[in-house]
Write a protein that binds this DNA or RNA. Structure first.
Length: 832
RNA sequence: GCGGGCGUGGCGGAAUGGCAGACGCGCUAGACUUAGGAUCUAGUGGGCGGUUUCCCGUGGGAGUUCGAAUCUCCCCGCCCGCACCA
């Protein structure tokens, strides 16, 4: 028996057989419950590394497991194929982005097949294919028709590295580009936006329903949407016919305002400076503040600066005159671009008045006592409390204070309640070549006119000089640029920007359902059957990018009546990263580990096993080749076991009915308790690493049985049952090995991947006798083996106290209590 | 600064109030063998002049409990998110 499992031969044979027998191709079937398993499709920038591979392997295990549970599983794959890297690589290497992309797709497809992932390859899509982006453009038109796509002039994020604009979500917290890490600047441009803010409330509210999403992701989206309820209060500017609107969530502190600060960009500022002796000084300050980079400007550690404008305004509640300052810590793009300074109750305002020697006034006292004297304050007290020094509002507390002040403001026309969001509209224009052209034309007579649906797709021209120059490469193609106005028939000019690739990926999960459908983005009946995605697997880095955009798209499509649900992804598993040298794998840093050499050396199943066994799916782990040997060892161990036992299992006289001895009952118990654990670990907890640990225990139990009972004496029926369960239970994890064992070694008909997931026998899991830990005062002193049916505590007590070591530990002391945890332990509480 | 997560053998990790270290890697010994980087078996947290009978041990400290890696509080460290958001 020193033959070895020829994984290379078996794996390629079964991959071919699966493809030939169309095993993973699925169609809607009203008679069966569906299960949509989706992994985030990759950006084809080269080969897949272990980070991607982990994603797809986790998804594959879950897909195969659900198929064995009787679901009609759809499991598709495609490519997020538009994007800057294709263009950058093409510029560098002189290849066309399309050629580069399709070559990478070819490589990745081969890798995925090599790993034995159960995709329905007929459903493969590439977002750069005209058959796909035609519908991306169609969805743009849908947005436009619904008033959700609009063009506006704005100061937008500009990434010099990518030579294009970016959406807010695509600028990292430190002010750098999410893709290339360049510092992002601002540029005044006229651009296309999607009105995602219109859905802010629903995007926020529906997060509560996503019970099977990680709390972390929901929190990140909540923070990103950033809803805050408050009021905008109008402060009339003294001596001018103007009001300064000030947004606050703390209207209960309005009597504590001692200054008002406006952003350097505030549109009212020029008016304040007309004929103002301080104008020159203020302008210089404003120029300086606006010249600061975004990063410096928004850095919390920097000391706040400001300058008095020379004007005052009137607090409409107290009637008091307060100075208007311009200050760099006030942001134009949040709230109204002006804040009321309440130094006693806001730390930023506190620091500001300490620096510029402005007054402060305490207007909130703690609920349970007196407040501090102004002179004693060393920091602002931002807590809610009881209003004081606030005229008619004195004594009001908490919510009541907020509500009554807001009511008063609205009632007297001094301002209005406002719900403000941090979320901004989604900037989707990109000044790059390799993307879906925005299907609009500009006509001198008719303005911006959408391309008629029947004229889609607006094809990306092949021959364009796509070297970045800060303007859209498409503008260099006269043939592309020239268009006819769909409305008046006159000469017109095409939009030359392409769409953010996140637009493409916001709906790909729908295209999979009707991948070659010519009559629409997807067939509504297909979506009705397959949607929503039951399980989505992908990296957490898309928490507020792709996952927010997709939710927005789904809601729009729901409003349009094309889908029935407003949420695309029911269950989300954010798999951890595979690290190399403590950081995410990166091709540019040369820390990318690819699966190919390991598949060649150990087989796809061993790579799958090693990847899954390294840790829980949602946690990061450092890649190491160390485990590969062990993974390959387990594959061989299973194979040898089945080869050794199959003859015994195949005996015609292999009935389960033959009486079983202690060894048999022990093996059967190990089999079924391991199976029970695997079922819970895969199906409920999604802890695939411990499911595999259970599978290993199962196999170890078989070897242990083989040690004590020689082959010819082994219980043929039990051996047969064992092999049947084992091979089915490892099938989702080690699909090639399981198929080889099922069909070739066990000689069964049909694919193991079409077998039901084995059910564990609760009776078999029960032990005949159990070993209890016996503790004295919580310390384990001995163990006691008793019949599992023993329920009589008196007998248990007697037996436990009869143990030598227990007797000694208890001797001479009084047993106060006996605590019994059934099946686990007995604890005697004695006097110290 | 705010919010969240984490901290367990030489290593990856297991145990979510009940026998700490499952499972695996690595290591040690043995068996088989011409050979072993194959395979199988056993051992493997630390301490001890007691090696089945004792003590210690889950970042540190306190607490709750018959019993704490697990719950509570304080502290330390690492990671992630947010960060002048008015």
């Amino acid at each position: 028996m020193d033959e070895r499992y020829n994984f290379a031969q078996a794996e390629s044979r079964w991959q071919k057989w699966w493809a030939d027998s169309r095993l993973y191709e699925t169609e809607p079937d009203g008679a069966r419950p569906k299960y949509y398993l989706l992994e985030m499709y990759p950006y084809p920038s080269g080969q897949l590394h272990m980070g991607h591979v982990r994603n797809y392997i986790i998804g594959d295990v879950l897909a195969r497991y659900q198929a064995m549970n009787g679901y009609n599983v759809i499991h598709p794959m495609g490519y997020d194929a538009f994007g800057l890297p294709a263009e950058n690589a093409a510029i560098k290497e002189g290849i066309h982005p399309a050629a580069w992309t399709y070559e990478n797709i070819r490589i990745i497809r081969r890798q995925l097949k090599m790993l034995g992932i159960s995709y329905d390859w007929r459903r493969e899509v590439a977002s750069c294919h005209p058959g796909y982006y035609r519908w991306t453009q169609w969805l743009f038109l849908l947005m436009h028709r619904r008033g959700l796509a609009y063009r506006k002039h704005a100061a937008v994020n500009w990434c010099p590295g990518c030579a294009t604009v970016l959406a807010n979500e695509q600028v990292s917290g430190d002010g750098t580009c999410w893709r290339c890490d360049s510092p992002v600047g601002k540029k005044e441009l006229e651009q296309w936006f999607f009105r995602i803010t219109e859905y802010a409330d629903r995007l926020l509210a529906d997060l509560d329903g996503l019970a099977h999403w990680p709390e972390r992701v929901r929190t990140m989206q909540r923070n990103w949407i950033g809803r805050s309820e408050g009021v905008e209060i109008d402060f009339p500017v003294s001596g001018l016919d103007a009001v300064l609107g000030v947004f606050t969530t703390r209207q209960d502190t309005v009597y504590g305002v001692t200054f008002v600060a406006m952003a350097p960009e505030h549109p009212l500022l020029p008016k304040l400076l007309e004929g103002n002796p301080r104008a020159a000084e203020v302008r210089e300050y404003v120029a300086q503040a606006r010249g600061m980079s975004e990063i410096d400007r928004t850095s919390g550690v920097r000391e706040k600066t400001g300058l008095f404008t020379g004007h005052h305004c009137r607090n409409p509640l107290s009637g008091e005159a307060v100075p208007i300052w311009v200050a760099d810590y006030v942001l134009m793009d949040y709230g109204s671009g002006a804040v009321m300074g309440v130094p006693a109750h806001d730390q930023r305002d506190f620091e500001f008045v300490k620096k510029y020697d402005l007054p402060l006034r305490v207007v909130i006292h703690p609920l349970d006592g007196p407040g501090p004297h102004e002179a004693d304050l060393t920091a602002a007290d931002p807590r809610y409390g009881r209003m004081v020094n606030s005229g008619p509002f004195d004594g009001l507390c908490l919510d009541e204070a907020l509500a009554q002040v807001a009511d008063h403001i609205e009632g007297r026309g001094l301002g209005r309640r406002i719900v403000h969001y941090r979320l901004r509209d989604w900037l989707i224009s990109r000044q790059r070549y390799w993307g879906a052209p925005i299907p609009m034309v500009y006509c001198d007579a008719c303005g911006a006119v959408p391309v008629p649906e029947e004229d889609l797709p607006v094809l990306l021209p092949d021959t364009v000089d796509f070297r970045p120059r800060g303007a859209s490469p498409l503008g260099t193609s006269p043939e592309f640029l020239a268009a006819q106005c769909p409305r008046c028939g006159g000469g017109a000019r095409r939009e030359t920007d392409t769409m953010d690739t996140f637009v493409c990926s916001s709906w790909y999960y729908l295209r999979y359902l009707s991948p070659r459908f010519e009559g629409g983005a997807f067939r509504p009946v297909d979506a009705a059957y397959w949607m929503p995605v039951d399980q989505y697997v992908g990296g957490v880095e898309h928490a507020v990018l792709h996952l927010l955009y997709s939710r927005f798209f789904m809601k729009v499509l729901c409003d349009e009546g094309l889908v029935k649900q407003g949420e695309p992804f029911v269950r989300l598993l954010t798999q951890g990263m595979v690290l190399k040298d403590g950081a995410a794998m990166s091709k540019s840093r040369g820390t990318s580990v690819v699966p190919d050499p390991m598949v060649a050396a150990y087989g796809a199943d061993a790579v799958r096993l090693n990847t899954l066994f390294a840790g829980p799916p949602d946690k990061d782990f450092e890649w190491t080749d160390q485990g590969m040997e062990g993974a390959a060892r387990f594959v061989g161990r299973v194979w040898r076991l089945v080869r050794l036992w199959k003859g015994r299992a195949a005996l015609p006289s292999a009935p389960m009915g033959a009486p079983m001895g202690g060894e048999e009952r022990r093996l059967r118990r190990a089999l079924h308790s391991s199976l029970q654990r695997m079922t819970a670990d895969v199906g409920e907890r999604q802890n695939l690493n411990t499911a595999l640990a259970a599978a290993m225990e199962m196999v170890n139990a078989a070897y242990a049985y083989g040690e004590t009972v020689t082959l010819s004496q082994q219980h043929a029926g039990l051996v047969a049952e064992f092999l049947d369960v084992l091979v089915r239970a490892i099938a989702p994890f080690l699909p090639h090995l399981a198929e080889e064992l099922w069909q070739v070694e066990l000689g069964r008909d049909g694919s193991v991947h079409r077998q039901p997931w084995p059910a564990f026998d609760p009776e078999a899991v029960k032990a005949d006798e159990i070993t209890l830990a016996v503790q004295v005062n919580g310390k384990v002193r001995d163990r006691l083996t008793v019949s599992a049916s023993l329920a009589d505590q008196a007998i248990l007590r007697q037996q436990a106290l009869g143990l030598d070591r227990i007797h000694r530990a208890v001797a001479g002391r009084t047993v106060r209590r006996m605590i019994v945890v059934p099946g686990r332990l007995v604890n005697f509480v004695v006097d110290e």
